[in-house]
């Protein structure tokens, strides 16, 4: 069995992710759970669980990313932008353009031939272009996240959702339902609306390199298809997209040693 060399933790606004990697950057074990308000305790318990499951050295170096990284003082702290770039580069082995759609924000990162960040863009101060946008509206429509893709694929046409603001979009959706618009069409329309906002972020950074996707929203096939439609380009979803940030964090520890 490979020897564990580093731990990476990604404390996002929605989910907590932790990975233990070996010296080649292979993930030996991982953990994904909803982020709790007690982030420091959650990180301590999560790391202890992974260490126990693998029976490895509890003093492994730790690196943390995500919005809650500052709550883990024992770890080296890095932004998600740097970590997602490192993770994506490790998984693909070449430069690229990565779209990371998370709960609180959406990031577009262009990285180079060493996994270094060349440029990046993020959604502005509101949640309009993020996973949280979808989560709020789908909750209002009583659509579970697991059936989103199937539902959207059944739609005959997308229903236009024009509000940029999550709060206004929620009330717009309520009125669309009241007007008798089909739920699947609204869900399809929501994905199109969100994709068009993300496409606006991607456009200034667009390059010839392959377009990649990471983050929890990448698990939503309807979103990937909507984004491909908006960008007119194929997208490769990275394996285990939720873990790319935590993987990058673990690789950063390795690189710094």
């Amino acid at each position: 069995m490979s020897t564990a060399t580093a731990i990476g933790v990604d404390v996002g606004s929605t989910t907590f992710k932790a990975v233990i990697c070996d010296g080649t950057g292979r993930i030996l074990d991982h953990l994904i759970e909803p982020t709790r308000p007690q982030m420091e305790q959650q990180a301590r318990e999560g790391i202890a669980l992974l260490v126990e499951r693998l029976g490895c050295d509890p003093a492994l170096p730790i690196s943390a990313t995500g919005y809650g990284r500052k709550r883990i003082p024992s770890a080296r702290q890095l932004t998600e932008i740097t970590c997602h770039a490192l993770g994506a580069f490790h998984l693909t082995g070449r430069p690229g353009l990565l779209v990371d759609m998370g709960g609180q924000d959406t990031k577009v990162v262009r990285f180079g031939s060493r996994g270094e960040v060349l440029d990046f863009a993020m959604n502005d101060k509101c949640a309009a272009g993020t996973g949280r946008f979808l989560e709020v509206i789908l909750h209002r429509l009583c659509v579970p996240l697991t059936s989103v893709a199937e539902l959207a694929s059944k739609a005959e046409r997308p229903v236009t959702v024009s509000s940029t603001c999550t709060v206004f979009a929620e009330s717009e959706v309520v009125s669309l339902v009241a007007q008798g618009e089909p739920v699947e069409g609204i869900v399809f329309g929501l994905h199109r609306a969100l994709a068009s906002r993300v496409a606006a972020l991607v456009a200034p950074l667009a390059v010839k390199e392959p377009l990649l996707m990471s983050g929890g929203v990448a698990l939503n096939q309807a979103m990937v298809r909507a984004l491909e439609h908006a960008l007119g380009n194929r997208i490769a979803v990275l394996p285990r997209p939720q873990l790319v940030g935590a993987l990058g964090a673990a690789l950063a520890v390795r690189n710094s040693q």
Partner: peptide
């Protein structure tokens, strides 16, 4: 977050 990512780059 943006500034830190910029500085890290």
């Amino acid at each position: 977050n943006r500034i830190q990512a910029f500085l890290e780059s």
